[in-house]
Amino acid sequence: MGLRERKKLRTRVAIRQATYRLITEQGYDATTIEQIAEAAEVSPSTVFRYFATKEDIVLTDEYDPVMEAALRSRPADEPPLVSLRLMMTETLTSFIAEEDEELRQRTRLMVEVPAIRARMTETLSETAKVLSRVLADRSGRSADDLRVRVFVAAVLGALREVALYWGEHGQEGDLVTMVGEALDSLEGGLRL
């Protein structure tokens, strides 16, 4: 990263950390953009320059480019579900190791705040576009191909449901293992 990108990243991180701290102290609804800006030592317009909504502060991270690069690094002839599974395992393991508390707070808020859960659908749609482009490149299909879109949406839907389930159940259990089990369900179908 260049100096400008590093400064932008530091600002995004400072805004997110201030947001999480304020939400912990006073709750999501009571936390305003003005309070977040003051705590992050930026202006409210700077907050909005980086994040369109308060929900985006909670949900936005820097992992789409990481996931894209990890998926692009997988062998071109590898089955797409295997590639996505390995990429998700690698990325999630890294996220847990580096930002465990942020992951836990984000998950709690996804469960507790309907506006965040609703906005999560939109942010996952953006992630789906990124991953669809990679799989489309590998398969010779269009990134807008219905099968590619449905496939990626199903995998990300599984990830979303695992996160919600984990949050609803006190964040108990190994998240990486749970994602693997969810992807096993996609691969093998639901057996009764």
Score class of each variant (00 low, 15 high):
120 M>D: 07
163 A>I: 06
125 S>C: 14
176 V>N: 06
24 T>G: 01
144 D>H: 09
142 S>W: 05
120 M>F: 13
153 A>E: 10
88 M>P: 05
182 A>L: 09
122 E>M: 12
170 G>Y: 07
188 G>W: 15
185 S>Q: 13
117 R>A: 11
143 A>R: 01
135 L>S: 00
111 V>S: 04
78 E>P: 10
13 V>C: 06
164 L>A: 06
11 T>S: 05
38 E>Q: 15
174 D>F: 01
138 R>W: 08
73 S>D: 14
192 L>C: 05
113 V>G: 08
50 Y>D: 02
118 A>F: 05
181 E>D: 14
127 T>A: 10
11 T>Y: 02
112 E>F: 13
51 F>A: 04
156 L>W: 04
184 D>Q: 08
3 L>R: 09
88 M>L: 15
157 G>Q: 08
124 L>V: 05
65 P>Y: 05
36 I>C: 09
174 D>P: 03
103 L>P: 02
111 V>E: 01
50 Y>R: 10
88 M>E: 13
138 R>A: 13
59 L>P: 02
41 E>T: 12
40 A>W: 00
184 D>E: 01
184 D>S: 10
15 I>F: 03
153 A>D: 12
147 R>L: 06
41 E>N: 15
115 A>R: 06
1 M>T: 13
17 Q>E: 13
136 A>I: 02
69 A>C: 12
50 Y>P: 02
51 F>V: 07
17 Q>G: 06
13 V>I: 15
72 R>T: 13
141 R>N: 08
1 M>N: 04
69 A>W: 09
149 R>N: 12
30 A>N: 15
53 T>Q: 08
76 A>C: 13
163 A>S: 14
147 R>D: 03
125 S>Q: 08
171 Q>W: 04
89 T>G: 02
178 M>W: 00
183 L>C: 05
10 R>K: 15
130 V>Q: 02
145 D>W: 14
88 M>Y: 05
145 D>P: 09
118 A>S: 15
124 L>M: 12
44 P>Q: 09
99 E>H: 11
12 R>E: 12
64 D>H: 11
35 Q>H: 05
109 L>R: 01
8 K>Q: 15
97 A>S: 14
151 F>Q: 01
121 T>K: 12
85 R>E: 04
128 A>E: 04
56 D>N: 03
143 A>I: 01
98 E>N: 15
74 R>L: 08
144 D>F: 13
48 F>A: 09
34 E>C: 06
37 A>C: 02
83 S>T: 05
120 M>G: 11
192 L>T: 05
40 A>V: 00
110 M>K: 05
173 G>A: 14
188 G>T: 14
80 P>V: 08
30 A>Y: 08
107 T>P: 00
161 E>A: 04
7 K>D: 09
115 A>V: 13
41 E>K: 14
79 P>L: 07
60 T>Y: 11
50 Y>T: 03
129 K>Q: 14
156 L>G: 07
124 L>I: 07
54 K>Q: 06
3 L>K: 08
155 V>I: 07
38 E>I: 12
182 A>Q: 02
183 L>G: 01
116 I>D: 00
52 A>V: 04
126 E>P: 00
190 L>H: 15
99 E>G: 03
43 S>N: 10
64 D>E: 09
70 A>N: 07
56 D>H: 03
79 P>A: 07
146 L>H: 10
76 A>M: 08
132 S>L: 03
